[in-house]
Design a protein around this nucleic acid. Structure first.
Length: 235
DNA sequence: AGTGCGACCCGAACGC
DNA sequence: TGCGTTCGGGTCGCAC
């Protein structure tokens, strides 16, 4: 921690990049790799403003402003690495292809899925295959692609991979437009709300009617994660 | 290698 | 001002 502080004093934040779910702050010879997990968020505040009990890391700048990292559950992670050592941050290095990237093709997904004996829900959460989908969007993508979450990778056809490409792109783009999804965050008073929850077709909708076929949405656990799907719409 | 699962964290939601 | 328990999100590390 002391080392972390000492290394940053006097350095300039030059840029902010993103790789999958990681934020990379370009600072001098370093990248500060920051993963927000569930509820991590950054705020700009004046240096003299009262420090909230969930503001765990504060960067103070010469102009009297702070960049403050706020994380209710202390679940996020930060990792300061020299730029040429970025490869040593496993999570950052092993990112797969993003839904918005034209390199995400049905052939690529078929190659990744067709020998796997893991459920599709688990495979969509694997950041080394598709980068950026979390528990909510994985459920939504599978609904959009009309694939049951427990189907194993080795049962998925090329055609279904095409549906996943399209569904993931559509859902991620729409979610970004909406400012994300607010489900468990209680910090909306701070201005961080997502509107995508209005678009959710299955996630967190156990025993509610499917918006397409009106049968009841089911909830199960796959790979230790809550998973929602429509028995009738998804094959 | 591939797969499965507990640990991490703590406020909210839930059950009584 | 009720209190104890469970849940959940993404990732890693360990066991098989």
């Amino acid at each position: 921690m002391e080392e972390f502080k000492k290394n940053l004093i006097g350095l300039e934040f030059k840029d902010i990049l993103r790789k999958g779910k990681w934020l990379l702050f370009d600072i001098g010879d370093y990248y500060l790799c920051s993963h927000l997990r569930m509820e991590g968020k950054y705020f700009i505040k004046k240096h003299d403003e009262v420090i909230d009990k969930h503001e765990h890391v504060i960067f103070s700048f010469e102009d009297g402003t702070d960049l403050r990292y706020h994380d209710t559950r202390k679940f996020g992670r930060m990792n300061l690495v020299l730029k040429d050592k970025l490869d040593t941050v496993e999570g950052v290095r092993k990112q797969g292809i993003e839904p918005t990237d034209s390199n995400l093709t049905k052939e690529y997904l078929y190659e990744k899925f067709h020998k796997k004996k893991l459920p599709m829900k688990t495979l969509l959460l694997d950041q080394t295959i598709i980068s950026g989908l979390g528990n909510i969007y994985a459920d939504e993508v599978l609904f959009g692609a009309r694939i049951k979450p427990m189907r194993l990778g080795n049962t998925i056809t090329l055609e279904e991979c095409d549906k996943i490409v399209k569904s993931s792109r559509e859902i991620i783009e729409e979610a970004i437009k909406c400012g994300g999804t607010t489900i468990r965050s209680y910090t909306s008073s701070l201005g961080v709300t997502g509107r995508f929850q209005q678009n959710l077709m299955v996630h967190k909708r156990e025993n509610e009617e499917c918006k397409i076929c009106h049968s009841l949405i089911k909830k199960i656990v796959i790979g230790g994660r809550s998973t929602y799907y429509c028995e009738k719409c998804q094959l």
